[in-house]
C-alpha cells in the first residue's frame, strides 16, 4: 500500500494544495495577523465569494477566474463595511470588546452561511471552465489541471500581496499601523482609515481566493467551517502577519493533509489542520516561523 511513488505524489499534490491554502489565508494574515481583528468570518466571506463566482459562471458563462476578479470591488466594499462596524462598536468602546467582537464575527459567519443556504440550497455547486476536468500525466502521477491553475494563480496572488505590503506606500503604512499606531497618528496619518483600507484589501483578495476554492473542488454552504481550521492554522503557524511565513505554513499544511489523505483516507483529513493548529497554539503561540 505504501510506496515512495505514492508518497512523492502526495507531496507534490500537497505543495500545490498548500499554495492554494496560502491564497485563501493571506487575507486573514492581514486582517487578523496584522490588524488584530478576530475575523472568524473570513472563511465565510471566502465561501460567499465562491458562490458569487458560481452565479456569474452559471448565468453568464464567465470564466471563474475573471468572475473572481469581477467581484473583488464588491468584496473590498464588504471589507470596508465590516471593519467600520467592528471599529465603531468594539475597538472604539474598548470594554469587553474581545468577547463581543468574536461573537460578532461568529454571528456574521453564521448569517452568511444561512443566506447561502436560503439562496442556493445545501447541495454542492461547481463551475465549468476549459481547464476543469482534464489532467496532466507525469509517468505514474496524474495532476489535475485545475490544481495547477489554482497553484499558479495562488502563488501570483500571494506574491503580489507581499510586494504590495513591502514596496508600496500604502502597504508600508499598513505594516506601520500594525506595529505602532500611536507613532503613525503623530505623523498625521489616520490609523483607522489605513486599517479600514487594509481590511478592504484583505477581503477583496477573497474574490480571487473564492474563485480558486470553487475551481479546486465543488463548494457547499458550510464549507467555511473546515476553512476556519485551515486559515487560522496557516496564519498562526506563520507567525502573525508574515506573508512569506503564510506561504511556507500553508505548504506545510497542504503536504501534511495530502500525506494523511493518502495513508489514512479522507475521513481523517478534516482533523489535520485543527490538530496542527491546536498543537501550534499550545506549544508555540507566537507561530512556528515567527521570531
Amino acid at each position: 500500500m505504501f510506496s515512495i511513488d505514492l508518497l512523492l505524489g502526495a507531496v507534490v499534490l500537497g505543495v500545490l494544495l498548500g499554495c492554494f491554502y496560502a491564497a485563501v489565508s493571506v487575507g486573514l494574515s492581514v486582517s487578523f495577523g496584522l490588524l488584530d481583528v478576530p475575523h472568524v468570518a473570513h472563511p465565510a466571506f471566502l465561501v460567499l465569494a465562491s458562490y458569487g463566482v458560481y452565479q456569474l459562471n452559471e448565468s453568464y458563462d464567465i470564466d471563474p477566474l475573471l468572475a473572481g476578479l469581477a467581484i473583488t470591488p464588491l468584496f473590498f466594499l464588504f471589507g470596508l463595511l465590516a471593519y467600520r462596524t467592528y471599529h465603531e462598536t468594539f475597538e472604539k468602546r474598548g470594554s469587553d470588546a474581545a468577547v463581543r467582537g468574536i461573537a460578532f464575527f461568529f454571528g456574521i459567519a453564521f448569517i452568511i452561511e444561512v443566506l447561502i443556504i436560503l439562496q442556493f440550497g445545501v447541495d454542492q455547486r461547481s463551475v465549468t471552465a476549459t481547464y476543469i476536468g482534464k489532467s496532466w500525466r507525469f509517468g505514474e502521477m496524474r495532476i489535475p489541471i485545475r490544481q495547477l491553475v489554482a497553484f499558479a494563480v495562488a502563488l501570483t496572488l500571494t506574491a503580489l500581496l507581499a510586494v504590495y505590503l513591502s514596496k508600496t506606500f500604502m502597504g508600508r503604512a499598513i505594516r506601520a499601523v500594525a506595529q505602532d499606531e500611536e507613532a503613525l497618528r503623530l505623523m498625521g496619518a489616520n490609523p483607522v482609515r489605513i486599517k479600514q483600507y487594509a481590511f478592504g484589501i484583505a477581503t477583496a483578495v477573497l474574490g480571487i481566493a473564492g474563485a480558486l476554492l470553487i475551481i479546486v473542488a465543488p463548494v457547499e454552504p458550510t464549507l467555511d467551517r473546515a476553512y476556519i481550521g485551515r486559515t487560522f492554522c496557516v496564519v498562526v503557524m506563520a507567525g502573525l502577519g508574515s506573508i512569506s511565513g503564510t506561504l511556507i505554513a500553508a505548504i506545510i499544511l497542504g503536504v501534511a493533509e495530502s500525506i494523511v489523505l493518502t495513508l489514512f483516507g479522507a475521513s481523517w483529513a478534516p482533523a489535520i489542520s485543527f490538530a496542527m493548529l491546536l498543537g501550534v497554539l499550545a506549544v508555540r503561540p507566537q507561530g512556528l516561523l515567527g521570531r
Binding site: R225, F274, L281, P285
Partner: peptide, 18 residues
C-alpha cells in the same frame, strides 16, 4: 494556560472538529 481571546475560541472549535 497558554491562550485567551480569539486563540482560545479557535482552539475550542478545533477540539470539536477533532
Amino acid at each position: 494556560l497558554r491562550m485567551r481571546g480569539i486563540f482560545f475560541s479557535i482552539a475550542t472549535i478545533a477540539l470539536a472538529i477533532i
